[in-house]
Simulated assay, not measured.
Amino acid sequence: MSTHAMAFSAQQLLCTVPLVVAISAVVPHGPGRGVAYATVNLFGLDGASATAVTALLSRHTSSVSVSALVVSMIGAVVLSTSVGAVQQRAFELIWNVPKLRGLRCYLRQLAWAPTLAVFSVGMLAAAGPGRWLDRHVAGAGGWSVMAIRVLLVAAFYVWSQFWLLDRRIPTRSLLPGSVAVGVLTIGLVEASRLVVPGQITWQVQAYGLVGVGFVFAEWLLILSVLIYVGVLIGALVAEARPAR
């Protein structure tokens, strides 16, 4: 399973990070908006770490055409089917179901890829309702953001397992593990707010802006392990349930 976690994190890094950098080069950005701001907010970055991530993700250029951006997005979606393939195979091993093959399987992975992009945007955008709530109820914003993100993660992994496993596992059996993935993921995000800023600062001092990529690669590896741990918890819960 560790091999699948490493493969998943590597595919995530190769397929999604270049796309994020490309989009951040053309979308509007500034105080309180843009990919850089959302990333800084997600990891609780400040000082040198926030400056480094902002410098990496806030570069803007008029030389990137819309057609080039569209082509890069389509390419990233097609290539990200490999992310779905790695996820699917890990789910099959955890749930002990036969491996799916063929064109239909690839088309399911291709259809899954855009939902990963939508889910990622939703996770970054979840901070918005928290800021609004903080203005009305002091201190409630942080908890609301965590709750929203847990629900987003749980819903995404119920759907991902159901879809990639070709509906071979009932939704009721997928729910406990997906909730576990949500709790573990948000636990990692909150713990990262204590660790990642210092790690980025140290890596940037040692290697320059490429050090940001090193930190995110390590973070994705840990996230991948936690995702599979959560799914495994769900499979064990389903196995322990008495048959009806």
Rank of each mutant, 00 (worst) to 15 (best):
F119W: 10
Y157W: 15
V237Y: 06
I200F: 04
G122H: 07
L56K: 05
M6Y: 14
V212F: 02
W163A: 13
A38Q: 11
A243N: 03
V204N: 04
W219K: 01
D46P: 00
A138G: 10
E239G: 10
P114T: 10
T171Q: 07
P129H: 02
A22K: 05
F216Y: 14
Q88M: 11
V158C: 04
L110N: 06
I233T: 06
S192C: 11
S2C: 01
R131P: 02
P170C: 06
H4V: 01
A36R: 02
I233W: 08
L184V: 10
Q12L: 15
S178K: 03
A217P: 02
L194H: 14
H4Y: 11
D134M: 09
A138I: 12
V40I: 10
N41R: 15
T39G: 15
V225Y: 14
L164T: 02
G75D: 08
R131T: 12
A155W: 04
R131K: 14
R101F: 08
K99H: 13
G177Y: 00
W112E: 02
V118N: 10
P98L: 09
V20R: 00
L45Q: 06
S62I: 10
G139Y: 13
Y106H: 13
M1D: 09
A50M: 04
P114D: 10
G187D: 12
V17W: 11
M123C: 06
V77F: 06
Q203C: 13
R104L: 03
V137Q: 03
V27L: 13
P170S: 10
E218I: 13
P114K: 06
A140N: 07
V70T: 12
A52T: 07
Y37W: 15
V83H: 01
A117N: 05
S65I: 02
M6D: 12
L236W: 15
L194K: 07
A55F: 03
L165P: 01
S62N: 13
L223E: 08
L164I: 06
A111K: 03
A235W: 10
L226F: 14
G182R: 10
I148S: 00
L79N: 02
T81N: 01
V153P: 02
T185D: 05
V231F: 00
S9N: 08
R59S: 12
R241V: 10
L184H: 07
L151V: 15
A191D: 10
P242I: 09
V231H: 01
L221P: 07
V26Y: 05
L107S: 11
A127Y: 04
H136N: 03
A111G: 12
Q88N: 01
